[in-house]
Design a protein around this nucleic acid. Structure first.
Ligand code: ZN
Ligand code: ZN
Ligand code: ZN
Ligand code: ZN
Lengths: 173, 173
DNA sequence: GCTTGACCTGTTATGATATTACATTCATAG
DNA sequence: CTATGAATGTAATATCATAACAGGTCAAGC
């Protein structure tokens, strides 16, 4: 399947540090949403109103939202106001690879490059709360190697780093 | 400072896959406890009865215990039975590097090589629940490299993998 | 030996996160 | 249409974590 548009046309769109760089975020979010349509229909899944709305909410900013934050937004918009409403939609998005759970924050963030297979690593700024998906290939390879040495087979991995993003680092210095 | 004993004398004592291998666990636990005494006194901290007991409880098995599991044990032994009792002791042990928090499990596990500086990676068996500390140097290096590429400075990292340990993998096959 | 102050422990109360169970609605295939 | 499975809504509850304060322990300094 062809990409939805030429990424060479939108510098930064596929950059690994997208969340930390100034960029055309309206485009970034719209693109993620279109990709989500493709991904879900290709999987025979349904991007229903709640699910779509939750994804839109996550896509508003490059940071992570707690399930109850999402729920509060949904509730004011006429959707259900009980926890399972948010948790179920979030679980769906995670399963489809459209969102990720950040374990350290007990929160969720929209995937910045859905549709592309990836075992992500996250960089979390403790100052501005931005969350970026880093290039995780080499990290994951090193982890696989360490696991293989002791005969352990990895099925899922959690790789998260807390620290300062370039902008906040600059501001602090 | 000299090590408490010669590790060359106890094969497996410092092995990275300690938790997945059959080993002299009584020795393993006793060793960790002695090291804990050294580490805390060197830091000018006090390994009080509750703290020591919590560490002993964590050292009983190579898996992770929730704060409330630890609390239940403490309560039957005459210590306080309210959550802060367990959380405070666990927090102390984590600060001293004597225990680690496993984010995926909301649980805690005793450190298998306290006193040695290390940014750990954990291998968690989804079948038998064993938790091992893997050799994390190369993984951490790859993560640092990925972060550096986008100007992010890492302060703390969480590296955890879920999968099957050698024994459970064998059993399943 | 007393006082003082830092640290540790215990307890109450509450907050934050997550799931189970069941009723209802909706989309779609036959 | 109607049967079927998927999705949603809701109530109730389970699980994980912290704030705030009171009392106790202990060692340094007078
Ligand atoms: Zn963006
Ligand atoms: Zn920042
Ligand atoms: Zn052991
Ligand atoms: Zn196992």
């Amino acid at each position: 399947m062809a990409p939805l548009h030429e990424h060479s046309d939108c510098p930064g769109c596929a950059a690994p540090d997208l969340a930390f760089a100034t960029h055309d975020h309206a485009h970034c979010a719209a693109d993620a949403l279109s990709r989500a349509e493709v991904v879900t229909s290709a999987a025979g899944a349904r991007l229903t109103p709640v699910r779509r709305r939750v994804l839109e909410i996550l896509l508003e900013e490059h940071w992570a939202l707690g399930a109850y934050d999402v729920l509060a937004r949904l509730a004011t918009e006429g959707f259900g106001n009980q926890p399972p409403v948010a948790y179920r939609a979030l679980e769906f998005l995670v399963e489809q690879g459209l969102a990720h759970r950040i374990q350290r924050l007990n929160a969720f963030t929209a995937c910045t490059h859905p549709g592309e297979a990836h075992a992500p690593a996250f960089l979390i700024c403790r100052s501005c709360s931005a969350v970026a998906e880093a290039v995780a290939g080499p990290v994951r390879a090193a982890l696989d190697e360490a696991a293989a040495q002791v005969g352990f087979s990895i099925e899922r991995s959690t790789i998260e780093a807390l620290g300062l993003c370039p902008a906040c680092r600059e501001a602090t210095a």
